[in-house]
């Protein structure tokens, strides 16, 4: 089980996680091109929740009971057994926002820049460390890998 957890006491609200998430989900994966050259900009799947001095990067925490998956009417939100993560298939998403209703963390937001689909962290499963974690300057986002939820018994 791969999870990214947030430590709000050291989140500094710089939003570099959002920036690097966007880079990671861009076509070129080059920061300057991603922001300055690509026509269709990728949407960051992590969002810094901020209130005064308090802030934290909020993205999917890979709930043990993923109510977003349970609630999804289209099957777009699914549990990927291979990576042990909750994933979202925007192709299948119809934008009913049931997942938003189901996510008690408020980690899923509407992708208002692109299609009417939910914007959901994919845990950067292709990377050793998710982009947001790797670029967090203050270790406010931490990657946790625990085996207790492995499918094998």
């Amino acid at each position: 089980m791969r999870r990214v957890i947030a430590k709000e006491e050291v989140c500094i609200g710089c939003r570099l996680c959002e920036i690097w998430c966007q880079v990671q989900h861009s076509d070129t994966k080059d920061i300057i091109k991603a922001f300055k050259k690509e026509d269709k900009q990728a949407v960051p799947r992590v969002h810094v929740e901020e209130e005064g001095a308090r802030s934290f990067g909020l993205q999917c925490r890979n709930c043990e009971e993923p109510y977003c998956v349970y609630s999804c009417i289209s099957g777009a939100m699914y549990y990927d057994e291979e990576t042990g993560t909750v994933q979202h298939d925007p192709e299948k998403c119809v934008g009913c926002w049931t997942c938003i209703m189901a996510c008690h963390r408020g980690a899923i937001l509407r992708d208002e820049r692109g299609e009417r689909v939910a914007a959901k962290c994919d845990m950067c499963t292709e990377l050793e460390v998710p982009a947001c974690v790797a670029h967090c300057p203050n270790e406010a986002l931490i990657l946790v890998e625990d085996d207790q939820e492995e499918e094998t018994e």
Partner: peptide
């Protein structure tokens, strides 16, 4: 209004707990 406005204990759950 979101997780950031909740009391600390709930925020901690939201930010770190697996459930």
């Amino acid at each position: 209004f979101g997780a950031v406005h909740l009391p600390i204990k709930l925020r901690e759950e939201i930010n770190t707990a697996a459930v």
